[in-house]
């Protein structure tokens, strides 16, 4: 597990994610949304809103927050916590930039349980 946690997966160039937008990484345990902020920070979290399963990767990105496209729940991308009156949490993953490439932590991604059907 320690070994795996230091393995980084190069998922692609930063330029392939639009500023203030997201893309998805497909995994056996469901999709992961990878976001790029206006200031070129990258964040990753489950692409599944805990409310009704909306694809967060299609939400509007503002600051370090993303709003779910289905019912406007807002999540902090650094913590995965729902904002405002809504209660809920989305699993976040470590994402980092290296020379214009976006890297995700393989151990975190592969170590999680498969998604249960909605």
């Amino acid at each position: 597990m320690n070994m795996a946690s230091e393995t980084w997966i190069d998922i692609g160039p930063l330029a392939d994610i639009p500023r203030e937008g997201g893309r998805v990484v497909r995994t056996a345990a469901g999709c992961v949304a990878v976001f790029r902020t206006a200031t070129d920070e990258v964040f990753a979290m489950d692409d599944r809103c805990p409310h009704k399963g909306g694809p967060l990767s299609e939400g509007i990105v503002h600051g370090r927050q993303v709003t779910c496209p289905l019912h406007n729940w807002v999540f902090d991308m650094t913590t995965g916590m729902a904002q405002g009156a809504d209660k809920g949490h989305v699993t976040t993953f470590t994402a980092r930039l290296d020379g214009g490439r976006v890297l995700l932590n393989a151990g975190e991604l592969l170590g999680r349980a498969p998604a249960t059907a909605p």
Binding site: R19, G21, A38, G59, I60, H62, G63, Q65, N72, V74
Partner: peptide
Amino acid sequence: VGGCASCRPALNYYLLSDWPMDYRDDRQ
């Protein structure tokens, strides 16, 4: 910072409606 999911689409609309020749639609 960067507005919210409520004001951003509204501002994008107001700008493209008021400045059709100058403003570039912001897809995000």
